[in-house]
Design a binder for these strands. Structure first.
Lengths: 204, 204
DNA sequence: CACTCATGTTGACATCGACAACATTGCGGT
DNA sequence: ACCGCAATGTTGTCGATGTCAACATGAGTG
């Protein structure tokens, strides 16, 4: 069998570091996400991560990027499911967003962490986050074409929808609603969103 | 004149520390909020802050608390202004929320910082944040009574409103909408919110 | 006037991010 | 087959930070 002595070169250290980072965040929160701790967990020296990440923030950004990719996949899966069932794609998207947030709270926290405020410094992160946004805008446009959503700038309507869902997720994650059932609130929010965007047949 | 030599006792160090903390965040971001940096700015020794804050997180929590108080004042002022002008109090609240966020981005970031996720550890913070929430619920109830908002659990409706406005503020602060005019987006969101909550005269 | 305790200071330690200098090895060109 | 280079890891180190313990100061109270 192959010698168990760790080969000097790890193979795919970058990926291992990312996975360890996710575990750390899950177990001990974002504050515990330390370059040295990640290195320890993977079993490499404390400076090894610097070969793959410029600094701590770069690691955080990379983890956030992973999070966005995961969410993007979840959103697209939800949209396809909705399309197959002839259901409302927009609503499905909103529900999927909140569900992903509740299922991966630490990922969400990293994705929108304060440290990463200036996206300009992390183009890859900005890109994947932008794609996510585009998916949403696209669904809004489709819903408009199908006559299910009021006319108007799809960018602005999408932003409104995103705001609502994102805010809901964040408030739930932050425990701002301690005595409530998250899913009920999410439902209420989604319903309000539907009403707000729906084509209004009546006067007013 | 009074001796300029710093008296051994500062007088109101706690308040000074809080103000220095706010300045630091404004100037250099949340990451620069360091116990030692705050102490330096105030001109006391590096361990002095420990007489007023248990640890770094406690300081952050206290700053967040200040932020909530400021926002609460802004919201209440906006509500009163709206009442005098017979305008819609709920909309005024939403606009005031986003405006406060855009005017005090660093405060907002601290208020909803990741580190303070478990509010249980900071009762004072939880309290003032809860009061803010109550104000919103109250306005929703009033709007319902005035027939301007659909019937339903005011808690849930208020949460939906809060979600939307909070999400809008957060996304704008995070620069997720780089090529847009913040105020336009805020308007769009608020309008969507109004529509979503409004009493529907027509058929669905 | 003396005592006491809150408030502030000094000094120390472990940890962290970051860098530089050095070690190892996979890989491509000859 | 050999050489050499560049990517990848390691060790050592530095300054800064959070945190604690031991000590100093003085404001207010009896």
């Amino acid at each position: 069998m192959r010698a168990r002595k760790q080969p000097y070169h790890h193979g795919d250290l970058r990926r291992s570091l990312l996975e360890a980072a996710l575990q750390l965040i899950d177990e001990q929160g974002v504050a515990a996400l330390t370059l040295r701790a990640v290195a320890r967990r993977v079993g490499v020296s404390h400076a090894a991560p610097y070969r793959h990440f410029n600094d701590r923030e770069s690691l955080v950004a990379a983890v956030a990027e992973e999070g966005f990719r995961g969410m993007l996949a979840a959103l697209q899966a939800a949209a396809e499911r909705a399309a197959r069932n002839k259901a409302d794609g927009l609503t499905a998207l909103g529900v999927a967003y909140v569900e992903y947030a509740l299922a991966h709270p630490s990922a969400l926290r990293v994705m929108f962490a304060t440290e990463l405020a200036d996206r300009a410094r992390y183009p890859a992160l900005a890109a994947v986050s932008s794609v996510t946004h585009d998916v949403l805008v696209q669904r809004v446009s489709e819903a408009q074409a199908a006559g299910r959503v009021v006319a108007g700038d799809p960018q602005e309507l999408a932003f409104a929808a995103w705001s609502m869902v994102h805010g809901c997720a964040m408030l739930l994650l932050d425990g701002q609603m301690p005595d409530a059932v998250p899913r009920d609130l999410a439902k209420a929010v989604t319903r309000c969103l539907e009403l707000g965007l729906a084509v209004r047949k009546g006067a007013k």
